[in-house]
């Protein structure tokens, strides 16, 4: 996937911006907490590089781990009541179902800009600072 205009702009500002490692050439490490995710997709729209995207699959375990007062939590509680066993892996999501999707995070594409974390309304995407030394070795120059 080519970079978006915004992504290009970010790379422009970086000297010798070549590697796009998960630790992020800009300075954040992205940590995702899928149990908090509600599938709104704001992170995916905000991501300039396509590292975060709305996938075509959904892991029903996310319903079990979601906060009980959330919509996913309520659905999880109903599912748990009638379940005969633990969910057996991810399921394919039909086109028109918007929010029950597991976010796909491609660490190799992440530049650590933190846009997803700023966009996330629930704290499911979190941006942690990376020590300066690590940034340098991660590729400011190479």
């Amino acid at each position: 996937m080519p970079l978006t205009a915004r992504g290009e702009a970010i790379f422009e500002r970086l000297p010798n911006a070549a590697p796009r490692t998960s630790t992020g050439s800009i300075g954040c490490q992205i940590v995702r907490h899928e149990e908090l995710c509600i599938g709104c997709g704001r992170c995916a729209s905000a991501c300039p590089t396509g590292a975060t995207s709305k996938g075509d699959m959904f892991d029903p375990m996310q319903l079990y781990s979601a906060p009980p007062e959330s919509r996913r939590g309520a659905l999880g509680a109903a599912l748990r009541t009638i379940a005969r066993h633990q969910p057996s892996g991810s399921i394919a999501v039909p086109d028109r179902v918007a929010a029950f999707r597991t976010i796909v995070f491609d660490a190799a594409r992440c530049i650590g800009c933190g846009a997803c974390a700023r966009a996330c309304p629930t704290g499911a995407a979190e941006a942690l600072p990376v020590p300066a030394a690590e940034i340098a070795s991660a590729g400011m120059n190479g």
Binding site: P60, L79, I82, R84, H85, P87, S88, R96
Partner: peptide
């Protein structure tokens, strides 16, 4: 589509 989704959920928990 939602019914297809609900059916997939049921299947994944053995219903």
């Amino acid at each position: 589509d939602r019914i297809e989704f609900a059916r997939a959920l049921l299947e994944s928990v053995g219903v």
